[in-house]
Design a protein around this nucleic acid. Sequence first.
DNA 1: GGCAAACACGAGCGATCACTCGCGTTTCAC
DNA 2: GTGAAACGCGAGTGATCGCTCGTGTTTGCC
Lengths: 218, 218
Amino acid sequence: MTESKAAQAEGAAKPRRRQARGERRVQQLLDAAASVFCQNGYAGASTNAIAREAGVSPGTLYQFFPNKEAIAVELGERLTHQMRQAHGLVFTVENAALPLGEMLDAVLDPMIEFNCANPAFLALINSTDTPGPVVEEHDALHLTLQSRVEELLGLRHPELPADRRTRTATMAFHLFKAGLDVILAHEGAEQRAYITETKDALYRYLAPIIGTEGSPVR
Amino acid sequence: MTESKAAQAEGAAKPRRRQARGERRVQQLLDAAASVFCQNGYAGASTNAIAREAGVSPGTLYQFFPNKEAIAVELGERLTHQMRQAHGLVFTVENAALPLGEMLDAVLDPMIEFNCANPAFLALINSTDTPGPVVEEHDALHLTLQSRVEELLGLRHPELPADRRTRTATMAFHLFKAGLDVILAHEGAEQRAYITETKDALYRYLAPIIGTEGSPVR
DNA sequence: GGCAAACACGAGCGATCACTCGCGTTTCAC
DNA sequence: GTGAAACGCGAGTGATCGCTCGTGTTTGCC
């Protein structure tokens, strides 16, 4: 779905026609990889284990991926792509105008939901041995997210010096990631409690800097 | 220094007499291991690379450690031991009675300093492939630290329900760890700025819960 | 000085793992 | 229907890595 056109755009390098069965296999393999990466990290995940988890032979796996790294890269790309779509819907001018508490709900809830549904995302980027390209892919996402947060801070508090704004955004981002880790480590009622706890922490961190009121302008 | 007595206490299992040269080698090897673990994580660190970094042959390494895991375990033990000593000096009744801002300085500064001086500590426990015993060792430290924080919360706000207290301590702990990661990722003036930023975040998170005033009692 | 034990070396062994290759099966365009 | 290409298999290959072993050197004790 993502690269049926993209592959043809790259053109010459990929003279590979893929059948519906193949697309299904790729998805199976990526799902299996996500599961194994979650359990053992990137280095700890053997390609044979991924193939076994997907219910295919090692040879079949290499029918669709040139090497182990490509699996992580493709998985990373799909996850970051989904993440970008999600955050595009979230950093809107309407949300920027909301009161702080509601803004945090509007921005954070989709992020939390995504990471709960795709724990492989955090597992991959928290792992130290993830391949370079995946890290760079995520760094790029991180940068756009951070600049979105900075824009948002700028809208709500234009007088804030640029360096303070960058620091605040960085800090808020990492505070949220810490909250996410705690949230993912719990379930049920506990998990819900830590979700509100995370929002509280961010609210209290941001309130003195950008205020709690939503702006009616724009 | 740590186990010259402890080894004799365990007794029968260790009929090994160590010379001064040997102790020096062990320290060299642990330093080298810390450095390599920082760069590549546990799984990515080959024993040959550790030996090379220490300037000795692979065989020499195995003169002092039965296997790769033992290196990480010994390193982890030494680091957690130092950490325990540091935090014993930090969670005192006097500090508990301080105003919130000063209390955070008193408790956090030594922790930050330790982790800046020993980045291998965070690297090891953030790595997904760290051996079980090291993780358990750290979990134990984590638990005692967390209960110290809970005691401290209890002293300052006795009416706080137990589950709220646990959640607050957990959250504060992870917020601090997030701050630590950001702090370690910077240096110089930037690093100092993120130190105060981390303290601010914790101050604002804790102030509504336990108040900002120090208690004159006790 | 002499001897036993600790220290040091580095080539190499066995296991693991990413990846291949030859061959058989399914799918699809014509 | 038929041929070409995609799909599928799993034993095997080469490289890496944890670890050993035979041998030689240094240290400390009598």
